[in-house]
Write a protein that binds this DNA or RNA. Sequence first.
DNA 1: CCCGTCATGTAATCTGTTACATGATTGG
DNA 2: CCAATCATGTAACAGATTACATGACGGG
Lengths: 194, 194
Amino acid sequence: MALKHAILAALSRGVPRTGYELNASFSDDNDRAWHASPSQVYAELTKMAKSGLIEISDRNERGRTSYAITEPGREELKRWLVRDEPDHSIRDDSMMRLVTMWVLDDTNARYLIEAETAFQRKRQLSLTHLLEAWDEVREDTRVWRNRRATYLLWLSQTELMLEWLSGFLDVLEQPERPVPEIFENMSALASLKE
Amino acid sequence: MALKHAILAALSRGVPRTGYELNASFSDDNDRAWHASPSQVYAELTKMAKSGLIEISDRNERGRTSYAITEPGREELKRWLVRDEPDHSIRDDSMMRLVTMWVLDDTNARYLIEAETAFQRKRQLSLTHLLEAWDEVREDTRVWRNRRATYLLWLSQTELMLEWLSGFLDVLEQPERPVPEIFENMSALASLKE
DNA sequence: CCCGTCATGTAATCTGTTACATGATTGG
DNA sequence: CCAATCATGTAACAGATTACATGACGGG
C-alpha cells in the first residue's frame, strides 16, 4: 500500500494539504514518482485519518478539508524508508511501446516516436521553468535541496530520453547503419566508450 | 488492460512461449518495461486464448503449454500502438524514496543511497553483459535493432542514475554547498549548461 | 445565469498481489 | 532420495479506475 506512503511523504514537510491539492500533485506529469486517481486519494485520506497517521487540521466553511501528518504518521514514513525493501518493479506503458515499435511500418513508427518526443519536450520545458523559478526563491532547506536535486535528475532523464529518441528514429529508418554506431556520439552515453 | 499488450508484444516475434517463460521476462529486473506476477500471467493467458488473441501452439507431455500470437492478436497489438493514447503516469517506489530521503538523518540516508547505488550497479553489469553477448551474435533484424537500442537506453539511464546518486550523497552531506554546483560537472547533465 | 474550476465522495468494476496447492523433472 | 527448479493454477483480498453524483464559488 504505497499510496499511503506517498501521501505521508507529501505531508511530511508539515504543511497541511487538502485532498484536492494532493490530487493535483499525484496527477502532475512533472511529478515522476507517484500517480493516483482522485477517488483513490479521498478514500485513502479518510482511512488514514481513522487510523491516526494523519489528522484533519482544518475544515473550511466550504467543502475543503485539510490534512496534516501526525507523529505516528512521521514514524511510519521513516519506518517504511528504512525497513521496507524498495520495489524496483516497473510498469511503463510508453517504454513498452518503444520496445514494440518494430512491428509497425516506418510511417507509423516515426509518427509515434515524434509524439513521444513532443511529450518529452513539453516535460523538459516545464521542468526547466520550475528550476528557474526556484533559483529566484533561493531557499536552501534540507527539503528544497532534496527536491531541487530530484528535479535535476528528472530533467536530465528527459534530456537523455530526447537524445535517445532522435537516435531511435535513425535505427528504424536507416536499416543498414549499425545500432551502436548511431548512438556512439551521444554525450549522455559517453561513459559507454570505456 | 496493458498486461494483455505486454503479452502480445512478447509473442509478437512469432516464437511461441510458455507461461513460465513469459513470467521470467515479466519479473526480470532487466526488463524495464512491464512487471506482472505469475498468477496474473496465467489467468491472462487463459482469458486471451479464449478470446482468440493467442492460441495454444503446443501442449507438452509435461505440464508446459506454449502460446503463439494469432493474426487478430497481431492486429490488436498494432491497434493499441497507433490508436490508444500512451499512459505516462508513473508509480515508482524507489523514486518516491529518493524524494523523501530528507526526512532521515544522514546515517540512514547514506545507507539507503548506497543500497540503491548497489542495485543500479548490478543492473549496469547485467545490461553490459547482455549487450556484449549480442555483439557476438551479430543479428541485425528489425526486432534486434529495436531491442539493442532499447537496452542501450536502459544502460545509459542506469549510468545517469549512478552518476546522480553520487552527487545526491553530497547534497545531503554537504549542506553548505549549492545544489546546482554539485551537479554541474556531470557529463550526463552537460546539456544543462546552455 | 451559465460555465469552468474547486472540492469531495460513492458504487461498480477491473487489475494485481499473496498465500496456498499441486505435481513433474533434474542434478547432486 | 532430497532439494531446487520447472510449471500451472485457485481463491481471497487489496489496490486502482471509471462513471457518476453533488454542490459551492467566481468571472464574464
